[in-house]
Design a binder for these strands. Structure first.
Lengths: 206, 206, 206, 206
DNA sequence: GATGAATGAGACTTCATTCAT
DNA sequence: GATGAATGAAGTCTCATTCAT
């Protein structure tokens, strides 16, 4: 069977990754066993270890994929978004949509579980902190941009970014755990309003 | 005709609970073994199972204790707090303080881990949802009170309450995971400002 | 069942140790699995890990026991042995006898296998070197004693000790691997003669 | 009608053999995986199995090569060596030199590990015994020759040969495991003296 | 009530060998 | 001939819970 194309391998990896995501989503990171992944991916245990060196690595790649997708998506939308306000609103909308799919809710639970899990392993911890900085830096840039254009009040952009993610993660966590869709949809809209009311330089509130 | 008094039993339970809390805090819920608890509590494994039927129950009682303490503390402060604003500010201050102790940060991580864990067991899930409603209801009351006195704008109190906890949990989670104290202290202060600026009926911002 | 006497535990440990020895002897260290030991000791896997923390530790305790027995035996014979020559001859006889039992031959194979195995783990390596020095030092003392009484020629005792063990181990290895009893009995006697002819201060040969 | 010449195949085999030797030396026989060999030999796993039917066979061929080299080397030196004493001294010198190279020490460890390993497989066991007899017989011839010329005392040559290898293997084992070069160089010299003092017909000792 | 030895299912990971391409 | 992906049995070790004493 060997001497397969790079593409073949990529696909195989994806089969595993998708299978793993399904399992992780359903049972959580720690509760998912390699055998679960074997079962859903129709591969042998050894095959999985041919592609990934550990359960941890599987999740990490999944996470990386999500990060990549996020920034890719955002970048692709950017040309259409002129102001910092528009950029931020786009993000609010995006998370709004996400919070409504069951899949994303599972995924967020998983993400939080893994973050918690990572807190007890120095190397993973570093990695997750790095990731956090990446996301936080991304928001910071938008805030600064908005401050330059006068859209936003002059405030420490770093803290604004932290607040942004704290709110988002807090809401996503609750939503993923409690999951009454309509309720969270509305909550999120109010959060958006709060947030803009907090940073906008105009005195208008919506 | 038991040889030991009720009080004796209470004390034993407490020894176990305190030992368990220490372990859970240090290693997390899943990673803590009964043997860990045995070790720190200087009790036998059998003794622990005499007082608690499972590891799960131990955590649940711990959680219950915290909830009770929280409301007890709050109730005891209430007489001194006249307005809804004061009540809310008191809570912000309280969480501020908590976020700065290492112990509380561990405890929050633990709490989140368990919540996540509970999501996959129907009975636990119900329980945690109940708890959430309790906390959420508590804030709702304050908001409503403030709206009646005109301190706060008329908005759907339920959502405000949800936002409150989302922000608080999001910030506590990040703080407990990233833990740069000073940074989170400041962030929390800004969150407080945002929040009040969002709900206050006056146009003043701090 | 618990709260057993120290003696009970000692006995249990011994059951495991004896079972393990049997397995190790038959299949070798690496080839023996914990399940093998479970099988012959009529205990559960968990029980074994209650008494020993790893397969490695089981062997190490076995080895320690042998070392202890060796020195115990030797010490108990010492009062009857006046001269260094007698002491050395006693050892030759002792090894002679050992080489003839099948059990000891297996045990020696096992010992060598483990020594080899230990060469790839720094901590084990240290441990085995320590053990070597202990045995080597023991012979050195005898040699020195004999040199003081004039029984042996003045030569570097350390090297004599090394030669002693090299010969012994070499012979034991071959004997354990090839195992034609009669042949090795005779060989060992000649080695004894060689050795004494090499170190004795008299010119007499047997 | 094979596409490749016999020579090509020989070369391939050698590449594998050399790679395997390196791995075996570094990690030992059992600890070496086929993947290790694949890695260092820059060949595919399948290719290795085209030339050798198993890991075992690879080692066996390596061993065979060493045996062949040993006798080849010895034979080539023979013309220059007139007496049995000279022949024996040549061997002592040869082993002396070997014991001082790290590579040979690893190789000896490997050899012992495999011998031990072979003890539990009837066919391998036979093979190793055969090998032993070959080496033993070789020394026997020299001893007999020396006895005929009067260089050596009349003693049972078979046992002398056994002693020779026992001493040599014992020393090589210790040297390979403990490896303080200078020490073992000296030890080996004393062993040589002992040995000759044991077998020589003259009363001279060095 | 207290004890802690015993259980055994189940976790992750490794690896010699095969065989479709 | 060459390739290397796939296999799956086997390995070591963990741990919540039970129950005889």
């Amino acid at each position: 069977m060997p001497k397969v194309s790079q593409q073949y391998k990529e696909e195989k990896k994806n089969v595993i990754l998708q299978g793993a995501l399904r399992c992780f989503g359903e049972k959580g990171y720690e509760a998912t066993t390699i055998d679960d992944i074997v079962r859903v991916s129709n591969l042998s245990k050894g095959a999985i270890y041919n592609y990934f060196s550990s359960k941890e690595e599987i999740y990490l790649q999944l996470l990386q994929g999500e990060t990549r997708d996020f920034f890719l998506e955002v970048k692709s939308e950017y040309p259409a978004l002129k102001t910092a306000t528009e950029k931020l609103r786009f993000l609010f909308q995006r998370f709004q949509k996400q919070q409504l799919t069951d899949e994303r809710r599972k995924s967020f639970r998983l993400y939080t579980e893994f973050w918690l899990y990572s807190a007890r392993q120095e190397d993973l911890k570093k990695l997750m902190e790095e990731r956090y900085r990446e996301f936080t830096g991304f928001i910071q840039e938008i805030i600064k941009e908005g401050q330059e254009t006068g859209e936003f009040k002059p405030m420490d952009a770093e803290f604004i970014a932290q607040i942004f993610w704290a709110i988002r993660d807090g809401n996503a966590l609750h939503s993923s755990l409690l999951g009454e869709e309509e309720r969270y949809k509305k909550t999120w809209e109010m959060i958006e309003a709060f947030f803009f009311s907090g940073i906008s330089s105009t005195t208008n509130r919506e």
